[in-house]
Amino acid sequence: MTAAGRSRILVVDDEPSLVAVLKPVLEAQGYEVRVAVDGAGALGAVALFGADVVLLDLGLPDIDGKEVIARLRRTSDVPIIVVSARHQEGEKIAALDKGADDFVNKPFEIGELMARVRAALRRRQNAARRPAAFHAGPLTIDVATRRVTIAGETIKLSPKEYALLTTLAESAGQVVTHRRLLAAGWGDGAADTQYLRVYMGLLRQKLEEDPAEPRLILTEAGIGYRLADDLPPGFG
């Protein structure tokens, strides 16, 4: 895996032990790393240093992590990955609703964190140049023709299924909340995740090799779904 040039990562965590691990490892991967130990430091660092990705712990000593996200979002669209020991879904959903892009639960393996960082960086690049096609493992989505193929074979999707899949693909590798998916499929008014579960089941039937053990459309329990983007490429 090649490192993404000199992408700048801001690590915001008040736990010296974790920072002491992340900094050298991220630097060894070719990232430029800055560290902030509290919310005020994080806001200042983004304003001065700019960042391509922010790794944010929610339990900061001065400002609540969710508030940091809200304040960052007023001036910046930098990808924010929440890194938190908080296990409550509610906290994560609130953070994602405030504008965080993804989350990693403590404790985590470094590979998982790196995958999230890469997904965030890729999404940022994609957003800039609006790719005509999307690839994830065996899955290909041709945006212009609305053609979806698995390992070269065309899959027929309903408009709703297509809308859900492209919403996942736009944030490939990142979690997409129930709320965002519902908005994409049913408009903002719809609220029943039961529909979502049914349609995700249908999508999995069509896309997954083994719908009972999905590898492409992953469930983030209580929060949303994630389209895996680092599968072995297969035919894609």
């Binding site: 974790l18 691990v21 060894a28 991967q29 908080r86 296990h87 404790p107 985590f108 393996e109 470094i110």
Partner: peptide, 25 residues
């Protein structure tokens, strides 16, 4: 949950870093 996960996070991140990227460090 909180207090055990914080040191566990550092341990897990350190150990997996050594395993995955040991050669690059």
């Amino acid at each position: 949950s909180h207090d055990f996960r914080t040191p566990l996070a550092a341990i897990s991140a350190s150990a997996s870093s050594l395993r995955d990227y040991g050669a690059q460090l």
